[in-house]
Design a protein around this nucleic acid. Sequence first.
DNA 1: AAGTGGTCTAGACCACGGA
DNA 2: CCGTGGTCTAGACCACTTA
Lengths: 237, 237
Amino acid sequence: MGQGRNQYQIIRSALCEQIESGALPAGTKLPPERQLSESFGTTRVTLREALSSLEADGMVYREDRRGWFVSPERIVYDPTVNTNFHTMVKGQGRMPETRLISAALVPATTKIQKLLQLPPLTPVYRVQRLRLVDQRTVLYVENYINPEYFPGLLDQDLQQPLSDIYRTHYSTRYSKVNFRLYPVGIHDEAATHLKVTSGSSGLLVTRINHDKKKRLIDCDFEYWRQDAIVITAQARK
Amino acid sequence: MGQGRNQYQIIRSALCEQIESGALPAGTKLPPERQLSESFGTTRVTLREALSSLEADGMVYREDRRGWFVSPERIVYDPTVNTNFHTMVKGQGRMPETRLISAALVPATTKIQKLLQLPPLTPVYRVQRLRLVDQRTVLYVENYINPEYFPGLLDQDLQQPLSDIYRTHYSTRYSKVNFRLYPVGIHDEAATHLKVTSGSSGLLVTRINHDKKKRLIDCDFEYWRQDAIVITAQARK
DNA sequence: AAGTGGTCTAGACCACGGA
DNA sequence: CCGTGGTCTAGACCACTTA
């Protein structure tokens, strides 16, 4: 299983083995870096090389300045299913939570304009939120919403799922019309909140409402932690 | 655009800007690490931190012991489309190529057994290949094939698309039935060939043949370089 | 043979978390 | 306050590529 001849790969394998064997169960906090590096007879730099590579593979995660932890089971996310975060997470026996960072009317960037098919200089609602599973931040989402369809949206309680607000207050139901997976390229704002370097992946989802014209109402950028998500989908038949 | 206060983030931003502005066109070889680190008034370690983070975002790539390069435009890959690598790449005006690493009858691992719904101890064909775009390795694929449907497959010319072999020699056409995206977790064999640490993402595809029983004929594990692919797909309507 | 990236050492200071 | 992770320095040796 990839022993490798380099130190950091040997350390990687050793930690990997401990995790897969169950000796280090999910959620366990690893010993301090200085202690670990001494145990392996190396320096912190090399040890961190090994830990970073495990992080990129989603086997461990870090909490800023608190330490390294063994990753829990990944959430499975199927973007083709027309459900929401809370339903999906609860369905897998985990505890979902949403925290609002900000909600405001902002000028649409060129990119958002195109995505929502809006004329130039249109302001849009931007909602920035964090999503947690079992108390841990696993996702940063940025929603851009066409304000024409949702006047006064900012006065609503944005801690609840947007889909609930759309349905309850605007009688709007939607479908996800397409998604794009960016294997890379974490947004700066997301990086600030997720506090990860390589351990995240991006996803773009757009939605249309179910009226006759099927207009685009919303698009969002989702930045998931690598250790927190497995994306799965069925192909078109 | 994420200046950051740390050195490596400043360097990151600087390089990022140069690339996005077009001052460093796709394919450009960056100056040697020692020279770059001196230019930025820092050490190689810090410079490499910046480069690695750009690699994780797919903006640059490395060729083992040859240097760092600005990434070309990404290939767009839609896993729900029932096409193959060569068609897809040529359709985007790029030059595809396939190299066979090995093809053999091997004992199925437990995982493969389950995926192909085979009884225990069944041997399967394993085909390992590299795929290149414009001379550059961007993908490592491992195919596991149910030998019951393709007797003598190893005698075929495996440089050509498997789909062509299936159709020409076995009168079999297939659909992709599902795929899974692993945002992380590069396979060891793949790592050997792709020579990347964080710059890759995995994909699992299974296929069924078009006969009345629609049996699983094949599954493959694809490991893409992060800088080489954008995955996109349409949701179920 | 020279230059380069891949890896590693043995330290250091800072800012933040937790007691 | 101390211990921790986050960041950084100024070197080093090796294996490989390139000329």
